[in-house]
Nucleic acid binder design. Structure first.
Lengths: 194, 194
DNA sequence: TCAAAAGTGTTAAAGCTACACCCATGG
DNA sequence: CCATGGGTGTAGCTTTAACACTTTTGA
């Protein structure tokens, strides 16, 4: 599990952007992701708003969590790089807390949502799905129990295709079932206007 | 379950206050609760930050959820009143969403935290505790299962006292066990400075 | 034929739900 | 002695965790 950090006057920090007049918060967050990282995030969720006492005065930061599919390219703009969340370089305490909290939320949320699918291509093998969960939770999962759970949850549809990749049995391909309900997400998904 | 609303130019709205320079967000939230309602909240948690397009331009609102013990008085300042969350008067869409979301979070969170105890006096009967859960969840709970669960969760300590109130068997009194861990709260509890 | 990952069932333990009666008290 | 709310146990069901072998393929 990697996180994007950018260069800062004194080290590394999370990508950050100033406000724009005339746009909703979520829109601004998407803009900042694109401008600073050049990435196309698959999912964006507001995390927490904190106030920080900086040399110039109090600053209010609205933190967001964005998920990026690794197969969508990982080229970053200048001054930015990917870092392991479990061993990232020294950053400011507020940024550190935001990352810790993002990981906490992500870990809790993949348990009752389909968030993990936002980190995979539209079609994938069960092993890839399990690998995504294992990377986020940072612990191994039992293959049989895992498969039984995701199938029982009705999240999967077989595409009918297979993928051969190596000298062994090919894996069946699945896609996320169309009948996911985002109502269990426990995050407000309200329209904020343009 | 009641919510405080105050008078607004065109109806009712959630208590709201402008920013103060030189204070952390949580501190400001506490100040606003005290100033507008005069209440002493037992618990305060940031809910969500939304941007709203008002006649004067975009406004960013950092919404908080505060819990108030009913036994701590319910006298409100002028222009404010208590309303049933399940049947409150017409309010603006953003305020409506904040209330809906607050109730959603509260309902989810009493399941894995000790939040309900913030709505009770330090010492209480099991029936009072169950009543708190039932009011929040808006459905009846089984007495035996409820008692078994809260006791198994190790949340309770008998005080040794009883409470007689009526022509029937007196109820044993409990307090919240000192060994609660707030680490399951899934909310960042970071220090923001003064 | 071998190596390597894909796929597949069962069993035991824990947790959850539903449900009915006796207990202590005041009037 | 009766009305009232306080307190208690059990049985069926569902969910979870642990665990090992067979299948298909390319080299």
């Amino acid at each position: 599990v990697l996180v994007v950090l950018q260069d800062d006057s004194s080290g590394k920090c999370l990508p950050r952007g100033g406000p724009t007049v005339g746009a909703a918060l979520d829109t601004q967050a998407r803009r900042i992701v694109r401008q600073i990282t050049g990435l196309n995030e698959q999912y964006l969720e507001q995390l927490y708003t904190l106030s920080v006492l900086e040399p110039t005065g109090w600053v209010v930061i609205v933190a967001y969590l964005g998920l990026v599919r690794p197969d969508q390219g990982d080229a970053l703009g200048p001054g930015a790089g990917w870092y392991e969340v479990l061993a990232f370089p020294h950053i400011s305490p507020p940024d550190h807390m935001v990352i810790d909290y993002a990981l906490l939320r992500l870990r809790a949320k993949i348990g009752y949502t389909t968030l993990a699918f936002d980190l995979l291509p539209p079609t994938f093998t069960l092993r890839e799905l399990q690998g995504t969960y294992e990377a986020i939770l940072d612990r191994p999962l039992d293959k049989r129990n895992f498969r039984r759970r995701v199938i029982a949850a009705g999240m999967l549809e077989p595409t009918g295709g297979k993928r051969r990749e190596g000298s062994h049995r090919p894996a069946l391909l699945y896609r996320l079932s169309a009948v996911l309900d985002r109502e269990t997400y426990l995050t407000p998904a309200w329209a904020e206007g343009p």
